[in-house]
């Protein structure tokens, strides 16, 4: 439910802390491992989990996430499997979970059924990458009706006249894509992030998360200096890939994620000092 996301951001604000959002692809390397990772992520302080729905043609993703989707698809992980995974996690944890998905699996599942089943399973929202507000009127209504957050993307190329429309569409939080391009591990943080985040914050009270390319504690800290939350994806996915099917995978990935969380949590809101 989007209330849960709102409560999470409200709690962070009153504690003077920044949020950490971890992305992983569901079913990479297996659905059981994904469940373990989510539960461990909660223990190391991850605030929101962004759960990738594997898709055969992920045009917004770099090679790391593409390979993760391929691994998951080799296990035949479908959107239905991802929704039941959330239901399963809910037996043990209430950590906010939003789906990160391409539109085609959602359309095939049926938009109505998707919203209903995601809400029933205990999901909190979705970021549907290639479903801009112009095309997703019906989806938006249904997501709202089920209390699910519709997370929208703002890009460095988003013109002012579109920005307000996207901010209207967004609920839960706004996702600012820190650079042009696809997901992936990058060496530096784009200079324009701070200016764009300030602009967004001047137009909305909704929390702003920043992602795409953030891969180490220094970058996470830099971004946490301006945003309400930091999203890390490919760097974690890369760690999963490196650890493979080893039994230590969950420990190694959680430890790595914990270090990134710690870097973000060291950044305090000015009002919190």
């Amino acid at each position: 439910m989007k209330d849960k996301i709102a409560r999470k951001f409200a709690d962070l604000k009153s504690a003077g802390r920044k949020g950490f959002i971890a992305y992983i692809c569901a079913g990479d390397p297996s659905v059981a491992r994904t469940k373990q990772l989510i539960l461990e992520f909660e223990k190391v302080g991850v605030d929101v989990v962004e759960l990738g729905v594997p898709f055969s043609d992920p045009i917004a993703d770099g090679v790391v996430n593409q390979r993760a989707a391929e691994r998951a698809l080799r296990n035949h992980v479908s959107l239905a499997d991802v929704i039941s995974l959330i239901q399963d996690v809910r037996k043990k944890s209430e950590i906010p979970i939003v789906l990160f998905t391409y539109v085609n699996p959602v359309l095939k599942y049926g938009v109505k059924a998707f919203c209903r089943d995601l809400a029933t399973a205990g999901g909190d929202g979705a970021l549907t990458l290639d479903y801009p507000p112009e095309e997703s009127g019906e989806y938006k209504k249904l997501m709202d009706a089920h209390g699910l957050a519709t997370i929208g993307l703002v890009a460095p190329t988003t013109p002012d006249e579109r920005l307000e429309r996207i901010l209207d569409f967004c609920s839960g939080f706004v996702y600012y894509v820190s650079r042009t391009g696809v997901t992936g591990v990058r060496k530096d943080v784009d200079q324009s992030v701070s200016g764009m985040v300030k602009k967004i914050k001047s137009l909305t009270k909704k929390p702003v998360a920043v992602g795409f390319g953030i891969s180490n504690p220094q970058q996470a800290r830099t971004v946490a200096g301006v945003a309400d939350a930091v999203v890390v994806g490919s760097a974690i996915v890369q760690k999963i890939e490196q650890s493979g099917s080893s039994n230590k995978m969950v420990d190694e990935v959680s430890r790595f994620t914990g270090e990134l969380v710690a870097a973000v949590k060291r950044v305090r809101l000015r009002s919190g000092r």
Partner: peptide
């Protein structure tokens, strides 16, 4: 038809 693309491309299409 339509425009089902990630946000980063919307401005370029316009």
């Amino acid at each position: 038809g339509g425009k089902y693309v990630p946000e980063v491309l919307m401005a370029a299409l316009a």
